[in-house]
Design a protein around this nucleic acid. Sequence first.
DNA 1: GTCTATAGGTTGATAGAC
DNA 2: GTCTATCAACCTATAGAC
Lengths: 206, 206
Amino acid sequence: MTTMTQHSTTAPRRGRPGNDRGDVITAAVSLFNQHGYEATTVGMIAEQLGVSKSAIYHHVASKEELLASALDRALSSLEGMLETANSSGRSPLERLEYVLRGTVQVLIDDLESVTLLLRLRGNTDLERQALQRRRNFNVAVAELVTEADDTGALRADIDPSVATRYVFGMVNSITEWYRPGGALSAEQIGDQIVNLVFNGLRPRSH
Amino acid sequence: MTTMTQHSTTAPRRGRPGNDRGDVITAAVSLFNQHGYEATTVGMIAEQLGVSKSAIYHHVASKEELLASALDRALSSLEGMLETANSSGRSPLERLEYVLRGTVQVLIDDLESVTLLLRLRGNTDLERQALQRRRNFNVAVAELVTEADDTGALRADIDPSVATRYVFGMVNSITEWYRPGGALSAEQIGDQIVNLVFNGLRPRSH
DNA sequence: GTCTATAGGTTGATAGAC
DNA sequence: GTCTATCAACCTATAGAC
């Protein structure tokens, strides 16, 4: 059963109609997430798009390039969002909240590529490089939490790097259940996350 | 490069020394987590144990049986823990806290098999059955959160089923970074999780 | 130890829109 | 005729079956 995935029509293109590089990457990432990168064959990607295997190689040089493109997209989105937050001149706590909401937004906008990133196991050099970039992002976020902690904006009895792990574990778990067209918007999910992370489940007595 | 994974020696066994069924499952689950179930071949499992492929089939009937055993182990641990919590006669809030700490304990005790469970994509009947059992567990936990909410133990402005998703997203993310022999015990991690979930990051002040 | 299927990847020519 | 996307056939290496 082949599914014709039409490219998102932005500007009219010249030449023979069909799939562009973005379509191929989209189909590939979806299959990578469903079956794992190793178990996904280029033939499966071609079948998904309803074209022959060699058509795939017109758009990309290798299967690994598909993985690299998707991971770079996810990482660039996250890094760009963090850069925006840190150059905003706001307080550490405000920047932290911005990063929380921004991460939710990136997860939802680039759901498939971020999901792929989060499921990496570091089996190849490429995967290990992506994991290193992801670690750098995590370290920068942990520094932000530390800054917020230093201003007294957070509870003193929780270690910042530990808190970062748990909080972003919660945020990243959105990829496990969020599906496009769901009832909740990115803004609503961001609100819920921020509320839960900062206030917890227990009633604020008095 | 073969890694001789010796079985966890509990009681001395008779007969020819070597791997038992548990050793095979342990090696298989580790490879399933590293490469994905589909991409893992029985030959890889044999190589990891330093035996021939046919030796694997002495212990299990199929590759799928290895998956089934691991998933059943993870699910039985979680279900048993939940059963213990719900038959304890305590308050909903106390039972919820018990389930949080219990889930952390199960994650750490059965790290590899629970990791496998959490990464399922539902590609086969077996996987879909396991995911259904996991959903049943999640529903039971959500009911527990609802009960706790009904007693006024939780903040009124957070939907119980939504909160359950986020909280267990946080808990399950432990599998992403916890490694045996790490600095933190299951009890310490449970304390951190419970503290963060119930109290949040913001100082409780006026 | 041989046989077969399948993997990633290549080649060179072609189809279709402008 | 230019541009993009496509295809059938092919190559080489390897992994599973017997």
